[in-house]
Amino acid sequence: MPDTPSLYDWVGGREALLGLTTEFYRRVALDPVLAPVFGHMDPEHPAHVADFIGEVLGGPTLYDPSGHGHVRMIGHHLNRHLTEAQRRRWFDLLLDTADAVGMADDAEFRSAFVGYLEWGSRLAVINSQPGVELPPSSPMPKWTWGAPGGPYIPGTA
C-alpha cells in the first residue's frame, strides 16, 4: 500500500522513541543486572539509541549520516562480553518500558518491534564476544511491517 506509514511514523517518530529510551535508561541505571554494563554511558546515550532505532524503523538518518551507522553500532559492542542474561534483561526491561510510556501496542507494530529487538540484541551479544572484529561495512538494518499490507486499522478490512 503506497500510503502505509513507516514503523517510525506509526510509533510517533523521534519524540516517542526518545521518550522510550530516556525512561528506559533511567530504569537501566537502577537495574542490578544492567547498571554495571550501562553505568558509564554518556548522558546523550538515550538520544543516540533513539536515533539508531528510528533509522532502523524507517525514520531519517540521524544516528550516523555518513552511512556507516550499523558498523558504528557494532563497534560499540566489541569486547563488552555481554551475556544472555544481560541481553534478556535488556529486552524485557525495554518492552516493560514501552508499555509504561504508552508506546503503540497494536499487534502488527509490536510484532515488528519485538522482531527487531530480538534480532538486534542477539547480534549485540555475538558482536560483544572476544575475537570479533569490526566489519569494514554493514548495511543499516531496515525493519518494516511483518504482515502483508502494513498495520491493521479497525474498520478497514
Rank of each mutant, 00 (worst) to 15 (best):
G75K: 09
H76D: 09
H77N: 07
N79Y: 08
N79V: 01
H81N: 10
H81L: 12
L82W: 06
L82A: 09
T83P: 05
T83E: 08
E84H: 10
Q86R: 09
Q86T: 10
R88Y: 08
R88A: 14
R89H: 04
R89W: 04
F91A: 00
D92S: 14
D92T: 11
L93C: 09
L93D: 07
L93Q: 08
L93P: 05
L95T: 00
D96C: 04
D96P: 02
A98H: 12
A98M: 10
D99P: 00
D99E: 15
V101E: 07
V101N: 10
V101G: 09
G102I: 11
M103A: 15
M103I: 15
A104Y: 03
D106W: 04
D106M: 07
A107D: 14
F109M: 07
F109T: 06
F109A: 05
R110E: 00
S111E: 13
S111T: 14
S111W: 03
S111P: 00
S111I: 00
A112N: 06
A112F: 04
F113T: 05
F113C: 05
V114F: 00
G115S: 15
G115L: 10
Y116L: 14
E118Y: 06
E118C: 04
E118Q: 11
S121L: 14
L123R: 03
L123H: 04
L123I: 02
V125L: 09
V125F: 08
I126T: 12
N127A: 02
S128F: 08
Q129A: 02
Q129R: 09
Q129N: 01
G131A: 13
E133V: 11
E133T: 14
P135V: 09
P135I: 10
P135C: 11
P135N: 11
P135L: 12
P136S: 08
S137V: 01
S137I: 00
S137M: 02
S137C: 01
P139W: 12
M140G: 13
M140E: 12
P141A: 13
K142T: 15
K142R: 15
K142Q: 15
W143T: 03
W143L: 02
T144N: 12
W145R: 07
W145G: 04
G146K: 14
G146S: 14
G146R: 15
P148V: 06
P148E: 11
G149P: 03
G149D: 07
G149E: 07
G149R: 10
G150T: 01
G150Y: 03
G150C: 03
G150H: 05
P154S: 04
P154E: 03
P154W: 03
P154T: 02
